[in-house]
Simulated scan of single mutants.
Amino acid sequence: MFFELSEEQMEINRLARDFTNEEILPVASKYDEEEEFPVDVMDKLRECGLFNLAVPEIYGGPGVDKMTHSLIVEQIARGCAGIATSVEANSLASYPILVGASEELKKKYLHRITYEGQYASFALTEPGAGSDVAGLSTTAERKGDHYILNGDKCFITNASYANYFVVLAKEKGAENKFTAFIVDRDLDGVLIGKKEKKMGLRASNTASVTFEEVAVPVCNRIGNEGDG
């Protein structure tokens, strides 16, 4: 089996390496010590095509393959693991949309992070559930043209800056029927908690998110009910 990198992959790796050396390493300690989200670094990463790495070109992303994606994140993490974590939050939120959302939702929400410079967060972890997805307690109840979401999410990367969240919830009254939704930050009942104080990865923003009677349009459901 042939494992050598292509010329294009090596070129992109050099770009990410040089960016890290010039733009991340000189400021990494500052952002970590001050626990500050590096908006300016994120903007520069976007300009260089080193952001939204999971998004295909047809939706405004760089359209890189998985190996190239890994090379870029590895270089960024070499400079600051916290910055790399926040960079990947947009990718993490993009995957469910790419896998299960309608074409209309893909264009609407992926364009917002690629063309409009927005942030997205994947909201899965809860105070009583994380890797044990079956333990999720956030609920979604269908009422007409909306789902009513209630629940608490915690340790959500980039939550303080996210313009929308990809949220996993279980159907109210059902034990193991989970559905994913795209929830806009500005909907009534979406409450962002205070930023967490952490021992490490402090350039990465982490906060809790609470959903109190949040009315999410049915059209913002990703896939069918229970596909989560």
Rank of each mutant, 00 (worst) to 15 (best):
G151H: 10
S121A: 15
V133S: 04
A203F: 07
D184Y: 02
N176V: 01
N163R: 12
A159L: 09
G128P: 00
F122C: 06
K195D: 10
D152Q: 14
V190D: 04
I156D: 04
G189P: 09
Y161P: 05
M199S: 11
D186I: 02
G135R: 15
K172A: 08
K177D: 05
A162W: 10
G200T: 11
E171S: 09
A123E: 09
V166K: 02
V167L: 07
R142G: 00
L168N: 05
T114A: 02
T157M: 05
N158F: 05
T157D: 08
R185N: 03
K170Y: 00
A129E: 05
V190I: 10
K194W: 02
L110D: 07
L149T: 06
G117K: 04
N205W: 02
G193L: 13
D186T: 08
G130K: 08
A159M: 11
L168H: 03
I156W: 01
R202I: 02
K172M: 01
N158C: 13
L136E: 06
K194V: 05
R185T: 01
K177S: 13
D132S: 15
K198P: 07
N158G: 02
M199A: 12
G117A: 11
N158A: 10
L136C: 11
K198D: 03
A129V: 11
C154N: 12
D145A: 04
G135H: 10
E126G: 00
D184G: 03
Y164T: 01
G135E: 09
A159D: 13
A120C: 09
T179S: 15
G144E: 12
Y147W: 14
K170N: 10
T138A: 15
T139K: 12
Y161E: 12
R185E: 09
K177G: 01
A162T: 06
K195H: 14
V133D: 00
A140N: 04
G128C: 00
L191N: 11
D186K: 13
I148E: 07
N150M: 05
